[in-house]
Structure formats: C-alpha cells, structure tokens
Amino acid sequence: MASSFDKYQKRKLISSYISVVISIALVLFLLGCLGLLVINSKKVADHFKEQVVMTIYLNDTAKEVEVNQLKKSLAMADYTKDALYVSKEEAAEFMKAETGEDFMDFVGYNPLKNSIDVHLKADFVTTEQLTEITEDLSNKAFIEEIRYDNDLVELMNDNVKKITFWVLIISGLFTLIAVLLINSSIRLAVYSKRFIIKTMQMVGATKSFIRRPFIWKSVQLGIIGALVALAGMAVVLYYLDITFPELELLKNTVLIAGLFVGIFVLGILITWISTFIATQRFLNLKTDHLYY
C-alpha cells in the first residue's frame, strides 16, 4: 500500500516538474521569438525600403558617353544599392510580356525612354533624401525625368516608426508577463512542498539550508526549460532563414548569440528569484496559515 502511495507521489511530482518546464519553455520561447523580431525588425524594414525604385528617364539625344558616366557615378554613389540600365527596347518587351499585346502595332513606334532603375540603400529612402538626390541629378541636361512613389515612401516610413514603437511596447509587456507566468508556476510548485518546508524549519534547519535544494531544483528546471525554448527558437530561425534568404537573418551572429544567452540566463534568474521569494514566504508563515 505504501509502495503504491509512493509511486503516486512520485508520478505527481514528475508531472509537476514537467508542467513547470513546459510553462518556462513556452514563455521563454515566445519571448525569444519576440526578441528575434526586435533584432531583425530594422533588417526587415530596410529590405522593404530597398524595394523602392527611383527611375531615371533619359532623353533620346543622350550620348553614350554621358549615359556611361551617369551609370558609373550612380554605381559609386553612397545612396545606391544597385542600378540597372533598361533600354527602350527592353522596356517595350517587358510591357508586351505583361499585357500580352504589342502596343507598337497601334502607335507605330516605340514611345518609351531609355532609363536607369535605381534601388537606394534603406537609409536614403526618405522624402528629404530622395528630393535632394532628384534635385542633384536633374541638373544633368540629358535626364528628362526622375520618378519614384513618394506617397509609398512616406507611408512606409510612417508605418516603420509605428511598428517599431508598438514592438517595443509589446516586448516590455511580454517580458513582464513572462516573469509573472514563470513566477506563478514556481510558486505553485513550492506551495505543494509548504508542509515539508515548515517541518524542516521546526526541526531546526536554517532558512538558507531549506531554500538551497528548492532553488537548485528550480534552477535545473529553468535550465531545461530554457534549453527547450532555445531549441524551438533555433528551428524557427533556421526556417525563416530558408524561407526569406534575402533577409540574411543569420548574419547577425553576435546579436543572435546575445539573445540566446540572454534567454538562457533569464530562465535561470527568474526561477532562482521566484523560488527564493516563494520559499521565503512559506518560511515566514505561521503553521496555522499553511492551510489557507
């Protein structure tokens, strides 16, 4: 009979430990994923900014030397990510492929212009920078027109600021929730041992002696939970890197390593502090209050 009761108690204890580990792992995993988002938010925003195209249309009278000089100056400019020359013939072929019709059959000639499509570096995709670049390039007589979607640029920059602000707010809120959830799980685990704590105290054990095994066990659970969370984060990061290779998520090795270490340390710290506070609370309780 005693053996059956002991097995029941052991199963109950293991079940309690597993639930604590799962709670810690899930909370740290979600917190880590949010951390990955924060770390890579600028890179994601920069990726979308660099999709904005500034098209420089050239006069038909533009000389080959002038065009080549312009291409070289654009390639060397600080604001250029890449520049692609598109001849009027290539533009006509592209439009034909897009519409499925040859518009030159109707107009009798090719009205399109030779152009250069410029993708700017993310830091230069602002209304002020684009205006300055446009004014500088417009001084060249052989450039007929420069076009870009200014409304899109303004909308994109406004949205990036809003998203960054809310991501920071959510990160802070999520960190607080993570601490509270893990603390709650640890307190429940310690609560089930409150009579053992009081018994040890009554036979003369010091508070530090009583706390030590509880803290060590909680730290072990925190380490296991953190390792599970880190494994999940690694899988998510690997999947995202394969799905969106252009973002080069794995190039931020220092920040990612720092995040992984931070999550691991956080798992240990929260469990240590939560267990210390929980055991201290029951150590200070009177025996009569243990039943409430």
Score class of each variant (00 low, 15 high):
R194H: 06
S138P: 01
M202P: 04
I270K: 02
L283A: 11
E64D: 14
F94P: 13
V52W: 07
G225H: 04
L168S: 12
L269S: 11
V160K: 02
T134F: 00
G222V: 05
G222H: 04
A231Y: 09
G262F: 13
A226Y: 02
S185H: 10
E144C: 03
S115K: 01
F174S: 14
V228A: 14
I169V: 10
D123C: 09
Q280C: 13
L26I: 13
R187W: 05
V236L: 09
N284Y: 12
E128Y: 10
S16Y: 03
I169Q: 04
F209Y: 07
E98W: 10
V107H: 09
G100V: 06
I268D: 01
F195V: 08
A75Y: 10
L130P: 02
R11D: 11
I197H: 02
D149Q: 14
A178W: 11
S16L: 07
L250W: 05
D158V: 12
V190S: 01
V38G: 11
E98V: 09
A122K: 09
D151R: 03
V67C: 05
Y8S: 15
T134D: 04
V65S: 13
Q9I: 15
D60L: 03
T206D: 08
L26F: 13
A141S: 14
F103A: 04
R211D: 06
Q9V: 15
G258T: 10
T99A: 14
A25R: 01
K286Q: 15
L266A: 13
V38A: 14
I22W: 03
L74E: 01
E93I: 08
I18L: 14
T55A: 09
T175H: 12
N159M: 08
G267H: 08
Q9E: 15
D241T: 13
M95I: 12
E64P: 06
R147L: 11
V228P: 11
V53T: 08
T80Y: 01
K71C: 07
K42N: 12
I116M: 00
V179L: 11
V52P: 04
S171L: 12
Y191M: 08
L237A: 11
L249G: 06
L74R: 05
I170C: 10
F276G: 12
L28A: 00
Q69P: 08
A178P: 06
N284K: 13
L26H: 07
I263T: 06
V118S: 00
T243H: 12
S15H: 09
D288G: 14
M156H: 06
N40S: 03
K81N: 06
S218F: 05
V153W: 01
Y17I: 11
W166L: 13
F260P: 03
Y109K: 10
I215N: 06
Y191C: 03
E246M: 09
G32E: 10
Q220F: 15
L227H: 03
E89N: 06
T127L: 15
R194D: 01
W166N: 14
S138K: 00
T164W: 13
M54E: 00
Y57F: 12
W272A: 10
V153T: 01
Q201T: 06
K193T: 10
K71T: 07
V179D: 02
G32M: 08
Y292T: 15
L180R: 10
F5K: 15
M104P: 07
M156F: 07
T80W: 01
S15W: 05
Q280N: 15
L250H: 03
G267A: 12
F142C: 02
V38K: 13
L70D: 00
Y291F: 14
